[in-house]
Simulated scan of single mutants.
Amino acid sequence: MSERPVRIGMVAGEISGDILGVGLIKELRRRYPNAIFEGIGGPLMIEEGFKTHVPMERLSVMGLVEVLGRLFELIGIRRKIRQYFLENRPDVFIGIDAPDFTLGLEESLRKSGIKTAHYVSPSVWAWRQKRVFKIARAVDLMLTLFPFEARFYKDHKVPVAFVGHPLADMIPLESPQVLAREKLGLLSTPIGPSQNVVALLPGSRSGEIHYLGEIFIETAKFMLSQNPDVKFLLPYVNEDRKQQIEEIMQRLGPELPITLIKGQSRDVMAASNVILLASGTATLEAMLLKRPMVVAYRMSAITFFIMKRLMKAPYIALPNLLANKALVPELIQAQASPQNLGKSLLQRLAKNSENEALNNEFIQIHQTLKQDASDKAAIAVSRLIDHDAN
């Protein structure tokens, strides 16, 4: 434990980054009780004493084309944060995910002599692999969540530490379905303890719901036409997203048995028999909860055209990437139709023996990622700080 005052700059760009950030702040504060944490962060980080200079949601933009509409605002925010940290120099600056925003900031700060770390590797191993050279210029240390990422950076001589994933530490190896339903207050509803339930997670951002919301509602309609006993749970992150979802439901299926639940997406997934979700961190969470899933993703035609030509990895879903094989279905763009998604979900509701084998695969991956990640990340960052001080 160090009593010296330490200033730690951080930028997190979305909800998953906020979760990682708050875990790291807690562990670093154990080592540096007088530390100042500031930059851009979300509500969890703020509750832990983090000072955010810009609301985190201003950085939450998806897709190449969608970023263009906010480009000047994002450039302005980065310039403002860069200038602040040049005038109020931190002992270390940590970019948490959001690589298109944070890596350029890290490179600039590092050139001025500020130590930099990046928490969560961009998908450089999957597409735009030449970015690794920019990363080498931008960071003193890369903190990776997954072991295959660490191997990639070692091969390219970039300082790296595999720390595991905090979600693997937080989520137990077993997540009983009935307990989750009880926590959500569903045992006294038509859902009860044994009803077949499908969790629908079209994403937490407006753009994701724009592309997937209607398809997910239409998928529910298709499934009900094949199995009238299925019920659905759909979590939402805030009132704006709830309103967006309700407008779609009112238009396409006001009679559908879909229960909207504020927050608690992890409990919603744990309460389900199978999950339909957008590609992203939620697929990792679903895997750690040991639930069968179908992964869908849609984006603008231009973004998809560009991504398809740059993509090097064979999969987009994290369970598949971690296993290096197709554990869960991935349906992208036109493939992500209500009929395709619905048929795949119904198959997974019925295949108990295959789901048991899938569960065993998920347990093995969970154990690999369970590394006490926040503590490991804090140890690696503190070495940067203390090395500079010595």
Rank of each mutant, 00 (worst) to 15 (best):
R79T: 05
L143E: 07
A117D: 10
V120Y: 11
G76L: 07
E48Y: 10
L71Y: 12
A138D: 12
H53P: 05
E149V: 14
A126P: 12
G95V: 12
M142D: 12
F93C: 08
F133W: 14
V67Y: 01
K154Q: 14
I77H: 02
F72S: 08
R82L: 15
L167H: 11
T52V: 02
Q83C: 06
E47F: 02
V160K: 09
V158N: 13
R128E: 11
G69Q: 03
R79D: 14
P43E: 13
L74V: 03
F93K: 02
V163Q: 06
F93Y: 12
F148N: 12
M62A: 04
V158E: 14
L103G: 00
G113R: 08
L141Q: 00
P122F: 08
P43V: 10
E87L: 13
L44Y: 12
V139D: 02
L167P: 03
D155W: 11
F93S: 04
P90H: 04
E73C: 10
H53S: 05
E48Q: 14
V67G: 00
H165W: 05
A161E: 15
R151S: 09
T52S: 15
L68I: 15
R137P: 04
F50Y: 04
V124W: 05
A126E: 11
R89T: 13
S121C: 11
N88S: 14
R128T: 06
S121Y: 04
R78E: 01
A138S: 15
R78C: 00
L64Y: 09
K115P: 03
Q129L: 11
V67R: 00
G41P: 15
F152Q: 02
V163D: 07
E149D: 15
V61D: 00
P90T: 07
L44I: 00
V120A: 12
I81T: 00
F85E: 13
F101T: 01
Y153G: 07
G113M: 13
Y84G: 10
G63S: 02
P147W: 06
L103E: 03
E107V: 07
S123R: 09
S108L: 05
F101A: 01
G42H: 00
A136H: 02
I96D: 10
P159R: 05
A138C: 09
K115E: 08
E106R: 03
K157V: 05
I46R: 05
M62H: 01
L143R: 02
F162L: 09
L44Q: 13
L167Y: 13
L143I: 12
L59G: 01
H53A: 04
V163T: 12
K111F: 12
I77A: 01
P55H: 01
W125G: 03
E107G: 08
S108P: 01
D169R: 06
G104R: 07
H156G: 06
R58K: 13
P55R: 03
R128V: 08
E66K: 00
R70I: 03
A117N: 06
F133I: 07
P166Y: 06
Y119M: 03
A168I: 14
L145Y: 01
R89V: 15
A126T: 09
V54M: 02
S112M: 15
L145D: 02
L59Q: 04
R137Q: 11
D155H: 08
R89H: 08
H53T: 01
P55K: 02
I75P: 02
